[in-house]
Design a protein around this nucleic acid. Structure first.
Lengths: 132, 132
DNA sequence: CTAAAGCTTTCCATGATGGTAAGGTCAAGA
DNA sequence: TCTTGACCTTACCATCATGGAAAGCTTTAG
């Protein structure tokens, strides 16, 4: 058993976030020692590592809650896991397309802008256009 | 001169956000009528339209503050405007790459997952890996 | 005159994270 | 033994742009 600092460095999750995950129920409440310090087991650290890796892949906390539940359930099917991941990929793709669209519009505007010391600028002209 | 509702529908910015933009100084404080209602001119609406279009392109409020300032300054140079836009494009690109990376990693995992009714799942195995 | 619509301000919530502050605990060294 | 520093605790605030709700005032239409 270890204190939060050790669990933090072993998992790569900041102590702050470890407490946060516990407060929202993503991590089950851990035992406390007599002085009130949280005590973490190797299993707890393993869960923190899982959470961290999922966050790095962009999964939201509710999604990770689902994944952890599947992970800890020996009755799960890989189809369920795949479904969660597939859904997240779609979300990523939607965001990517949205950003790409913005970027392309901006690139079009920039290409028309001289970028010199005169005030005339197609970018500003476009932004102030009333129509859609 | 018009009330906030009319300025809102003329610009496409919600009344809520119109007040917010004013509160943070992005929109200059507008005149009030005797009853305390905000009064908007055509110029104010024009600024709201500008803000809305810039938001749609993903510019942050501070960036829009800068753009509005350039827009209203006849001494501006198009190079300055271009610089702001170019910087934002870079931000968009950075985010896109980050999301693409997540997506690619996930796609790799999904392709290895059978997605059947058995519990074995490379996605969960990867998420629980201790190493980096 | 009344009801509805529109305006006002203030407070709360989002999501995941970091910071700060005020205080308790513990271990090591003088 | 005392002190110092590192570590822990909770509670509160901030982010960023947006929406919602409440409570109350004004204007307009019927």
């Amino acid at each position: 058993m270890m204190n939060i600092g050790e669990a933090s460095s072993a998992s790569g999750v900041s102590p702050k976030m470890v407490r946060y995950y516990e407060s929202i129920g993503l991590l089950q409440q851990v035992r406390r020692s007599d002085n009130g310090y949280r005590l973490y087991s190797g299993d707890n650290v393993q869960t923190l590592i899982f959470i961290r890796r999922a966050r790095r892949l962009g999964f939201s906390v509710p999604q990770i809650e689902h994944l952890v539940q599947l992970w800890q359930n020996p009755e799960r099917t890989s189809a369920e896991v795949r479904e969660v991941a597939q859904h997240h990929i779609q979300e990523l793709q939607d965001k990517i397309l949205e950003l790409e669209k913005m970027k392309q519009l901006l690139e079009g505007l920039i290409s028309q802008c001289h970028g010199d010391d005169k005030p005339d600028c197609p970018i500003l002209e476009d932004l102030s256009r009333r129509d859609l």
